[in-house]
Nucleic acid binder design. Structure first.
Lengths: 233, 233
DNA sequence: ACAAAAGTGTTGAGAGTACACCCATGC
DNA sequence: GCATGGGTGTACTCTCAACACTTTTGT
């Protein structure tokens, strides 16, 4: 806002502003997304990304966290939340002009388990890569969130946000494979992840049916960014 | 927007929504940004990123292009424009709640020259890395735009948007150096830029004081993306 | 003992980086 | 003829990608 040095801020008709939060988790061996049911409108059986109006005294990220809490019961500032994009086509909601600021959140299924009984009666998890029909432009928002997640996971350490506090290297590799939808080489993966110096080994092991696996933890002080390969030198 | 299956869309008080467009060009051998003067308010001599209210029937990107045209006179759909981030802290504008969707634009000084006499009386160009004091949270918006530009220039071919249609390899290299604020090796730069197969040589040369330089053009059909170096395999 | 997942090294190819000199033109 | 920017090649290093077997545990 710049040109007018003074103006009547009430003179313009204002759009509604909402925040929609795309919530991802790893469940049942795949990447899943939380959706809420729209009972009759605009079409029977359509689902939607959870969202709500931005209150006049709350910031956008606070509104997104409020939405996250309402739907999952999780009220933890450590949950990863990032602004995605703002969608504002004039006809994206046929009722009225609604501009929505989309966020995406990553949450471990462990954290979700702790808050199982939330009030989200009509919310359910769906495979992120195979969602049901979505209302409005929400399919576009979900695609965009998946694209950003895939991209982000390649050059930062966000994937850890989807795992429990301690995890095995195989669990970490599976998380990457589910997000990237791609198989990775075990030896190369382990060598590189250990070389990155972002993990610390714990003294514990995960005992299952077979040989126990060492448990690792993400180093809080780790700076996990990769120097990007440039298009030009 | 999801939970309420029906609601009165008029029941909430609504924030104002603006679009602010950070306009970059290469001028006088440096990266510059267009700012507008805020005459008396909130503080004497402060400058601001050009912006304006989003009309009820226009999309966000159309609003950003409208702003671009009002300030520079340039009304060309080829001008590079990208949504940056949405800033919505409740107190970012002390008068009322204003949520602003920031965009950034890249425009060549050649295009600007064609539209020199626009109505932007109080607009002026400033060094992007050394701007004057800025109003509201506009310093934060500008920093964010510079960060994104630096980042984007490394893995896509956006830098061409700042050059004329034809350019010498030295001009291209200087553009990269001004944006990245870093010196590059001439031989490596030329080898890699030619290997990327995004340029076509023209038959023309730029004659200056000394040996004439070949002029190149960006290939319209070029797909200029780099496969990103991953944090993990 | 056997099934199942954990864990571990080497090699060849390609890309990145550092580095110095001759060339064509205007004055 | 000289000053100025244009233009060119090589050698070393590092990172990436492909690939198969041994170890440890539970049953």
């Amino acid at each position: 806002m710049g040109t007018e040095s003074s103006y009547d801020v009430t003179q313009y008709e204002r759009p509604s502003v909402t925040v929609d939060t795309v919530i991802f988790t790893l469940r049942q061996g795949e990447l899943q997304v939380l959706l809420v049911e729209r009972k009759n409108w605009p079409h029977e059986g359509e689902w939607a990304i959870p969202g709500g109006f931005v209150q006049m005294d709350e910031s956008l990220s606070v509104a997104a966290r409020r939405e996250l809490k309402e739907e999952t019961g999780v009220d933890d500032p450590d949950v990863y939340l990032e602004q995605l994009y703002t969608f504002g086509a004039p006809d994206r909601d046929p009722r009225t002009r609604v501009i929505t600021v989309a966020y995406f959140a990553l949450i471990s299924s462990e954290r979700l388990r702790l808050h199982a009984g939330s009030d989200a009666a009509s919310a359910a998890w769906f495979p992120a890569y195979h969602p049901p029909p979505l209302a409005f432009d929400h399919a576009e928002i979900l695609s965009y969130a998946l694209e950003r997640l895939r991209y982000k996971v390649e050059y930062t350490a966000v994937a850890f946000q989807l795992l429990s506090e301690t995890f095995t290297l195989t669990e970490l590799q599976k998380a990457y494979e589910h997000i990237l939808d791609e198989q990775l080489d075990k030896r190369n993966f382990r060598r590189k992840v250990l070389a990155a110096n972002v993990l610390e080994a714990t003294t514990f092991v995960r005992s299952g049916d077979h040989r126990p696996a060492k448990l690792y933890r993400f180093r809080e002080d780790a700076v996990a960014e990769v120097k990007t390969r440039r298009l030009f030198p």
